[in-house]
Each structure stands twice: as structure tokens, then as C-alpha cells.
Amino acid sequence: MTTQSDDRSPNAPSHASGGRLRATFVGVAAVTCVAIAAGFLAFVSHLPGAETKPDRHADGIVVLTGGSSRVSDAMELLAAGYGKRLLISGVHPTSAAADISRSLQESQALFNCCVDLDHSAVNTRSNAAETRRWVHERGFTSLIVVTSNYHMPRAIVELSHALPDISLIPFAVVGDKWRDEPWWLSGGALRLLLSEYVKYLAAVARVRLAHLGIDLTFDIPEPPASSPSPRRPATAQVN
């Protein structure tokens, strides 16, 4: 008499185990995607949509170049007495002081007396390092930080890490494109924000690891700026 083969083969447990593993992987991937998406939306929702003057004055002002109108806004703050001196950090190596001052004709006297240029910084992390050197040389204890609204979170992370004993007052510059069109309707704006969010997460991770004594020196490359414009100081790297 023939017997029916047993459906429970030796491979059945391994198939079941593989199925559970795949389900776990898919579940973890789904949760990770949702967390990243939620984090991105939270990141964007906290970006200022309008420029607001600082609520107090500071010893100095630093502007991290790379976006339109950052330098002119920083000069306006300096002219209004919000700080004693201004550091323009990330000036392109080929841009001289005369090149920049020509683009700021209405503030040329102020530029000549109270503005310092940093040609060394090539990204946000080195902006923070050069700002630390400048602040300590000047003996400042408070600083107004000027940069674009989308770049401000990462700038504050880097500057807070480099200058834990300095009071930082953000002044976020809001570009015309940001005001004119919702970011979710602009492919360019969406790509910029996604890129900045990734860089922000990388900066937060590196700084937190540094607090634990783990020094990671990685930096996500930032694309080089275009050639210097006669109307705007260029940077070595776009922030």
C-alpha cells in the first residue's frame, strides 16, 4: 500500500523563517520611511516664512554666504547697530574686499571700518570653525547668525557645537522664491530642502556622536558655487 507524502518537509521551517524575516524587513523599512517623511515635514514646518528682526543686540554678526541677499541683510543689521562688527564667512578665494564693497556702495564706509572677511571656510562646518576663531579673537560673547531660512537649522547645530559658550541669535533670510511659490510646487525648492534635510541629519548625528567622544569627520559634499558675481560676493561652497 502506498502512503501519501507528508506535506511537512524539512524545508518548511526555513521557508516560514524567511517569510517572517521578509515581513520584519518590510515593516522596519516602512516605519523608517514614515519617520523620515514625518521628520522632513517637521523640519520644513519650522522654517521661518518671513524675516523677523532680532529681539536683542549682540556683540557681533556673522553671515554665512551662499544665498541671495544674505550679505546685504547682514549689512543692514550692522548699520542698525545690532552688532559691533560683521564677519562675512565663506568668501570666494578670488573675491577681494574691493569686489564686495563695490556691491555695497551705500554701506561702503561701514564696510571699510567694521567688516571682516573669511576666505577659508568651504562649508558650514568650516564656517563654524572660522567663526569660533573670530569670536574668540574679538572677545565676543553673543552673535547674530545670518543665513537662509532653510540653512539656519544646520548652521545653528554647527555653530552651537563650535561655540557652546556663545549666545546665538538667528536671523533667517527668506528669499523671494520662498515667498512667491509654495515649496511643494517647485521641483527645485523640493530638491534643495531634501538635500538640506539630509545634511542637517548628518550634522546632528556627527555632533551627538562627538558629545559621546566619537569623532567623525565626514561631511556631505556641498556643490561648488558659480563664478564670482560683480553684484554679490561668491562663496567657496554653497550653503
Rank of each mutant, 00 (worst) to 15 (best):
V204K: 07
E158N: 02
L117N: 05
P13W: 05
W134I: 02
G213Y: 02
H211A: 14
V26A: 13
Q237K: 06
W134A: 04
L201K: 04
T141K: 10
V28Y: 04
S167D: 15
F171V: 03
E196P: 05
D176E: 15
D215E: 14
L41W: 08
L194G: 10
W178E: 15
G39V: 08
D165T: 07
F171Q: 07
D165I: 03
S126V: 03
L64N: 04
L77T: 02
G67A: 14
D180R: 12
S45A: 15
N239C: 13
W184G: 04
F140E: 02
S17L: 15
S107M: 14
R85I: 05
E76W: 00
D116T: 08
A30Q: 02
E130M: 12
L193R: 08
I214S: 11
A74F: 02
A234L: 03
I169G: 05
S120Q: 14
V63E: 04
W178K: 08
L117M: 09
L159T: 01
T65M: 10
S17C: 12
W178C: 00
A23F: 06
N123Q: 02
A205G: 02
S148A: 15
Q105M: 12
E222H: 08
H15A: 15
V157G: 11
A96Q: 13
N11E: 15
R206Y: 07
R102W: 04
A155T: 08
L190E: 15
S186R: 07
I36K: 05
R206H: 06
G67Y: 09
A97P: 01
R231E: 14
S167G: 10
I169W: 03
L77C: 01
S120D: 14
G90C: 08
H15P: 00
F171C: 03
E51T: 05
S160W: 00
Y82K: 02
Y200C: 09
A203G: 06
G81M: 12
R231Y: 11
A128Y: 06
D176C: 00
S89W: 05
A172Q: 03
K199D: 01
E130R: 11
T235L: 01
Q105L: 13
L41V: 12
V135D: 03
S9M: 11
G66Y: 03
V157P: 08
G18P: 00
D165R: 01
A96P: 00
N11K: 14
T141M: 07
H46G: 13
K177W: 14
A162L: 04
S69P: 00
V146S: 00
D219H: 11
G83I: 04
A203M: 00
L193G: 05
D215A: 10
S160N: 10
V198R: 11
R125I: 10
G188E: 14
N149A: 15
V174Q: 01
A58C: 06
